[in-house]
Amino acid sequence: MTQIISRKDLLSWLERLIGERIVIAPARSNGMVLFQRASRAEDIVLDFDNTALSPKESFLPLSEALFTVDKENGNIKLMPTTVDEETVFFGIRPCDARGMALIDAPLLAAPADALYQQHRARTTLIGLACSQAGPECFCTSMGIAPDDPSNVDIMLTKVDDSYIVQAITEKGKALLPSDLIAESEVMPPPAPSLQAVLTEGIVEVMPGVFEAPYWSRLADRCLHCNICAYVCPTCYCFDIRDYIDEGSIERVRSWESCQSPGFTRLAGGYDPRSTKGARLRQRFYHKLSYFPEHFGLIGCVGCGRCVRYCPVNIDIREVISDIQKLGAQSEC
């Protein structure tokens, strides 16, 4: 037996949730599907491949004050930002849910990033299994299935005009609308099949190709914009600086990317990673070598956003297979 909810009831449930807490869900905006705060269930998009930007923005916002400096009568007090409101994050894909789990590894490692931790703790993730795969998708190569229920609190899988509902965690169970859920005999459809990239052994190959001229050649066409990092569900690099507005001082954290020109430039101008090739290489080493060294998993979930949005088609799948070839060459 499985539990199901009809499309209509799903929308009424979401409408109910919108009345109770913040609901972030996919919606159409300027020709894109983006996760946005929903004010009406009818704006929520249920059928989409994946959103243009990853869900990380809800947990690690583009910009967020870590604290505000309160200056009264010459006294200074630091007021930390806190996350108080409960949020339901609806429509996260299995790849992106893994992305959040990957960002957890560095950010929740002791001492935990308090603000990020609050964002995560205050949010319930409702996952949506993929019924079809985009041409850029390769989650299976990263050990994720298109209907993988790990890393979410509730998983929904579309069957005809209904959704199979699985409560994965206690937090998810608590959120389920028992009145809208029915028992059923339906079976989940088979997950779509995807193109595969050979990732086996890549972590071991990486250290040996660091000096390969490959990187500077690849960087020839790289524009060194931040698109790949900003659309990526696992990139978490950030910058911290102060922001003054009308006399109020905030210490702000914002996204930053290892591709941006000033990323490693020290005060005084010295930049140990000044060449384009070195910067691009850092991106792939972080994902395919350093991150797995530290946390045991490749820092990529195969969502394919960087493949789709890179203006010059630097395709991580191709890079992985090129590295495999380079590694094989250097062995013989």
């Binding site: 560095p106 950010l107 690099c237 950030f238 911290i240 930053e256 490693t264 850092q282 972080h286």
Partner: peptide
Amino acid sequence: EMKMKCGLGKCARCN
């Protein structure tokens, strides 16, 4: 020496 921001191994800059 490397450019640092967080001091905690989280901002992924000074590797």
